[in-house]
Nucleic acid binder design. Structure first.
Length: 227
DNA sequence: CCCTAGATGCAT
DNA sequence: TGCATCTAGGGG
């Protein structure tokens, strides 16, 4: 039986906070230089933008309006917004919402269900990977494991799966959305955007590939919110 | 311009 | 807790 179907542009046109929970258990397939890595998403965060019918989001890269960096977030849903975090890691978002309205879902955690060898090799360039569950646990790790990089793959289309800088990405949505979903404040976002105003982090309860984050930094209290 | 903080991860 | 490494954004 079919468990996943290719994501359509329409399915991603709703606002990120609506799309985000539906991306849990979704698959992101990435082919890069002939190697294939498939990620099953376990943790995501929604980010909106500013103005024009959108929900204001002080934690978003698009909070100041369109800039060269966040241009992809304002474009068609289904493309991937790949940005450089702390000058080191390439993090991956699925652009959501109508074109012209900024929005995206940050992919924060995943299980590598195919291509663990390639993922491990890419990740070990930055350090030692002790367990397979850590291959894509955390947004920076997920980006490294996927092979997608800033800036060359920023804007790649995960709906059509077109080739871009040696890579091809495709997003597959689960036929049956999950019922058991945990929610809470976003990680690493300072100020009100990380608090109760924006409980826009979604994860699969008890999934070992959900990121662990340091308390006492960034977002403040939180994990128990939906347990 | 210069400075700082950032949707992070790793070793200490 | 410090560091890697780069850049957007705010202040002078």
């Amino acid at each position: 039986m079919t468990t996943h179907v290719p994501a359509t542009r329409e399915a991603l046109t709703d606002l990120p906070v609506e799309v985000a929970p539906r991306l849990l258990d979704a698959l992101l397939e990435v082919e890069l230089d002939g190697e294939r890595v498939v990620l099953r998403l376990s943790e995501v965060e929604a980010y909106h933008g500013r103005g024009t019918g959108d929900v204001p989001d002080p934690g978003s890269h698009a909070r100041m309006g369109p800039t060269p960096r966040n241009a992809t977030m304002w474009g068609e849903p289904g493309h991937l917004y790949v940005y450089l975090s702390h000058g080191i890691h390439s993090c991956v978002n699925v652009v959501c919402g109508p074109a012209g309205v900024a929005g995206g879902v940050l992919l924060r955690g995943a299980e590598v269900v195919e291509g663990a060898d390639a993922a491990r090799r890419r990740r070990s360039a930055r350090g030692v990977v002790r367990q397979d569950r850590d291959l894509a646990r955390g947004p920076g790790r997920l980006g490294d494991a996927s092979g997608l990089r800033h800036p060359v793959h920023d804007g790649i289309d995960a709906v059509t799966g077109d080739m871009r800088a040696g890579a091809r990405a495709r997003l597959l949505l689960p036929v049956s959305p999950r019922r058991d979903i945990a929610t809470g404040p976003r990680v690493g976002v300072a100020g009100v955007a990380g608090g109760d105003e924006f409980p826009w982090r979604f994860w699969i309860p008890d999934d070992p590939t959900v990121s662990a984050f340091r308390w006492g930094r960034g977002a403040g209290p939180a994990l128990s919110a939906a347990r």
